[in-house]
Design a protein around this nucleic acid. Structure first.
Length: 198
DNA sequence: AGCACGATTAACT
DNA sequence: GTTAATCGTGCTC
């Protein structure tokens, strides 16, 4: 089994971490079962000046985790029904994180299908709220350390990718943010993957 | 205390 | 293409 990515990995510039996360695996151990997928799409949110980032409002009960140490899960609730999974990056005190937007399902596909109830394999984890539903990630995971040995939630290295396999474009669903933040090319994805969000 | 809205999804026409 | 679902958060009164 591959080793967990370390805090040192996440304590770097967010765009670097986001790019290198492509192909890495998000793993959640649930009742002894290993639920996992390869990260095929993710977005960077960087600092209080990024008007699309939750950290723009400063330290609040909700954003506190984002301001904390890297390698910790920031899980938040939105649209009255959806949970979003993020990984905190950069140094303690700087509000930055990476939203994991889509996975290529690998382990525990039968269990993930039971959690989702809808759609086929490509629809299983092809969106930020779909993958949290499939992997059963929710409010309990906000603030969980992904880098300790005993955590049930972590990130592993995956198959190495060539630079040409990684695409880059503006972030999804941030039309509320003013320029230049709305158009920052901070979304990364694996080119040609059928598992990215629609 | 009340309000507008959201880093979305699925089900519509 | 449009829209309902559904509630925590941050802001205004």
């Amino acid at each position: 089994m591959a080793a967990r990515l370390t805090r040192r990995f996440f304590a770097r510039p967010t765009l670097t971490v986001a790019r290198e996360l492509m192909g890495c695996r998000l793993v959640h151990r649930v009742e002894g079962r290993r639920l996992s997928g390869a990260i095929v799409e993710a977005e960077a949110y960087i600092g209080e000046e990024d008007r699309a980032c939750h950290g723009r409002v400063g330290r609040t009960p909700r954003t506190e985790v984002m301001f904390g140490q890297p390698g910790v899960a920031y899980v938040y609730f939105t649209y009255g029904m959806h949970w979003m999974f993020n990984i905190v990056t950069e140094r303690d005190g700087l509000a930055a994180a990476i939203l994991v937007r889509a996975l290529e399902p690998i382990d525990g596909i039968d269990v993930m299908r039971a959690h989702r109830k809808l759609g086929g394999l490509t629809a299983l984890c092809s969106g930020p709220a779909k993958l949290t539903q499939a992997l059963r990630i929710d409010r309990r995971h906000n603030g969980v350390d992904l880098c300790t040995r005993d955590s049930d939630l972590w990130i592993e290295a995956g198959e190495p990718l060539k630079p040409g396999q990684i695409g880059r474009c503006p972030r999804i669903g941030v039309d509320y943010a003013p320029e230049p933040w709305r158009s920052k090319p901070w979304r990364f994805f694996i080119r040609g993957s059928p598992f990215i969000s629609k």
